[in-house]
């Protein structure tokens, strides 16, 4: 079954829409779901043109397609366990919150908290991801615990904060403090990163671009050849300000004189 949701024109297009009801399993019972636009509860059909093609007997056979102006729609795919969601353009915050299975594919950019506290399944974002990609909620001790997040563009600050399990693969650059408070799992950054893995307790982070301002509390212990990539990386253990059992592998460590002044960092998270 394919459910195509195309946004209708709205009087106040800047109002956020909270749409955790948009998960494949909910459409088995029909498309008359509700979402919140600002502080008003609306029928899905008030905000979207809905087209349903075919039928399905189980949620894994449901594919939800989102089209149009979707950048302000939050929480799509929250608690999703199976099925597929394809978003043609950009998507708002918290896409794939707590998802445990299924696939989310985003054609454009994803706003902050993509795959927050995800447990399983996979998310692929063809554009950039905002701050806190694959991280945890405020005050939460665990971020993503399982599954896979792949971002073809860049990710913002605090990417994979509290990463505990699963794999995060960023093809572009990361902002400040990727992998901060990491406890497990694997973070791969193909591009550049600044101050990665502060307070890391466990897990592995590999960075193949330039690392600016590596923290002074990471200890260089070895070099290693990665045969599948045919590159040699420097291996660090850290963060010794904490338990220091994490592994950080860097292909291009920062230059000695590179202080990377704060005003050249990517735009910081505001809060």
């Amino acid at each position: 079954m394919r459910v195509i949701l195309e946004t209708k024109e709205r009087k106040k297009p800047f109002l956020p829409i909270e749409a955790e009801t948009i998960i494949p399993s909910n459409f088995l019972k029909g498309p008359e779901l509700t979402v919140y636009e600002g502080n008003k509860e609306r029928l899905l059909s008030d905000l979207f043109t809905i087209v349903v093609e075919g039928t399905a007997v189980s949620p894994d056979k449901v594919e939800v397609v989102l089209k149009g102006d979707t950048a302000r729609i939050k929480r799509v795919g929250e608690y999703m366990a199976t099925g597929t969601i394809r978003i043609q353009g950009d998507i708002g915050m918290h896409c794939g919150n707590f998802m445990s299975g299924g696939v989310i594919e985003i054609g454009g950019n994803a706003d902050a908290w993509l795959g927050r506290e995800m447990l399983g399944g996979s998310i692929i974002c063809h554009g950039n991801a905002g701050h806190y990609c694959a991280s945890g909620y405020r005050g939460e001790k665990h971020g993503m615990r399982g599954g896979r997040v792949e971002v073809m563009g860049n990710a913002g600050d605090f990417c994979s904060e509290y990463l505990t399990g699963g794999e995060v693969h960023i093809h572009g650059n990361c902002g400040d403090m990727a992998g901060v408070e990491m406890k497990g799992g694997q973070l791969i950054i193909e591009g550049d990163a600044t101050r990665p893995c502060g307070n890391m307790k466990d897990g592995m982070c590999m960075i193949f671009g330039t690392v600016h301002r590596i923290l002074p509390t990471f200890e260089k212990i070895d070099t290693k050849k990665l045969p599948d990539r045919n590159v040699t990386v420097t291996v660090y253990k850290g963060d010794v300000a904490n338990r220091g059992k994490g592994t950080l592998m860097i292909q291009k460590p920062h230059n000695e004189g590179d202080q990377h002044p704060a005003n050249t960092l990517p735009g910081p998270a505001t809060t």
Partner: peptide, 15 residues
């Protein structure tokens, strides 16, 4: 401290 370097200095003190 150089601007923006507080985190590094705090980590160093912790170590």
């Amino acid at each position: 401290i150089e601007r923006g370097g507080d985190y590094e200095v705090l980590s160093a003190l912790r170590a």
